[in-house]
C-alpha cells in the first residue's frame, strides 16, 4: 500500500545488519550536508544508486520516480532563491519589467546548482535507508541507541496501526467510489469528511479491542519481540569505513578551502 515499504521487503540488502546500514546512511548524509561539496555529493549519489539499484535490486523505474518526489519542492524552493526583483540588473540574467528587473546573479546560480546536487544526493541517502531497511529494523536500531522505550513502543504501535487504518480507509473509499461518492466537488469533500470521521471511530474501537487483547496476554507496557541477530560482515565494515573516511577527507578539505 505504501510503495517504499513494499519495496524494502523485496530488497536483496534487507537482511544485511541494520545498524551497519543505518550508520552508513546517516554518516554519508551528514558528510554530504556538512561539506556541501559537489565531489562528495556525486560520490554519495553514485554509491547509493549502485547499492540500492545494483545490489538491492530495487527496480530502476521506481527509483527514478521516487527521486522525482521532492522535485516540485526543489524547483519552487530554488526558483525563489534564484530570482530577485531589483532596480539594478545582475550579471546572470535580467528581464525588464517597467522600472524593475527580474534578475539573478551568477553567484546565486552556482549556489542553486550546488544545492540541487547536495539535496538530491542527500535524498538518495534517505532512500538507501528506507528502501533497504524495514521499519521494524530501524526501530530496533533506535532501541539500541537508547531512545526511551515508551517512544519506541509508541512508534511500533503507530507503524502497525498505519496499515490497519490504510486498509480500512481504502475499503471505505472504494465503497464511496462505487456509490458515486466522488460525483462532483461538493460530494467529494463530503465523502472525504465522512471517511475520515468513520475512520476515527473505527480507530478508537480498534485501539480499545487491541488493548483488551494485549491485557489478556499480560501486557505490562512493553511488547517484547525477538530480534534476529545478523552480524555484520568484516568486508562490509571495512568498505563502509573506507568510504566514510574518504567522505571525511573531502569534508575537511572543503571546510579548509
Amino acid at each position: 500500500m505504501i510503495l517504499i515499504d513494499k519495496l524494502c521487503y523485496q530488497s536483496k540488502l534487507r537482511y544485511v545488519n541494520a545498524t551497519e546500514k543505518f550508520v552508513y546512511a546517516v554518516l554519508s548524509l551528514v558528510f554530504c550536508i556538512v561539506s556541501r561539496s559537489a565531489a562528495a555529493a556525486v560520490l554519495v549519489f553514485l554509491a547509493n544508486g549502485i547499492l540500492t539499484v545494483g545490489k538491492g535490486k530495487i527496480p530502476l523505474s521506481h527509483y527514478i520516480k521516487l527521486l522525482l518526489v521532492p522535485a516540485a519542492f526543489l524547483l519552487l524552493g530554488t526558483a525563489a532563491m534564484l530570482i530577485d526583483l531589483s532596480r539594478a540588473p545582475m550579471d546572470a540574467f535580467a528581464f525588464r519589467i517597467g522600472e524593475w528587473y527580474l534578475t539573478g546573479s551568477t553567484a546565486s546560480l552556482t549556489r542553486v546548482c550546488r544545492l540541487w546536487i547536495t539535496a538530491l544526493s542527500a535524498v538518495t541517502c534517505l532512500y538507501f535507508l528506507s528502501l533497504n531497511t524495514t521499519m521494524t529494523d530501524i526501530l530496533e536500531v533506535l532501541r539500541k541507541m537508547r531512545l526511551p522505550t515508551l517512544l519506541i513502543e509508541l512508534m511500533m504501535l503507530i507503524y502497525r496501526f498505519i496499515f490497519l487504518l490504510l486498509e480500512t480507509a481504502s475499503a471505505i473509499m472504494t465503497a464511496q467510489e462505487s456509490r458515486l461518492g466522488n460525483r462532483d466537488y461538493r460530494t467529494k469533500v463530503r465523502s472525504f469528511g465522512a471517511m475520515a470521521s468513520a475512520l476515527f471511530v473505527q480507530s478508537m474501537r480498534r485501539s480499545d479491542a487491541l488493548y483488551d487483547a494485549l491485557e489478556s496476554r499480560c501486557y505490562d507496557g512493553t511488547i517484547r519481540v525477538l530480534s534476529q541477530e545478523r552480524p555484520a560482515k568484516k568486508k562490509e565494515i571495512v568498505g563502509i569505513a573506507l568510504f566514510e573516511s574518504l567522505l571525511l577527507l573531502i569534508t575537511i578539505w572543503s571546510i579548509i578551502e
Partner: peptide, 20 residues
C-alpha cells in the same frame, strides 16, 4: 495504560489522513 493504544491510534490516524 489504555491511553497508550489510544495515543498510538491517534498518531496513525494523523499519518493516514495526511497521506491520503
Amino acid at each position: 495504560r489504555r491511553n497508550m493504544t489510544l495515543i498510538a491510534m491517534a498518531g496513525a490516524f494523523i499519518f493516514v489522513i495526511s497521506s491520503l
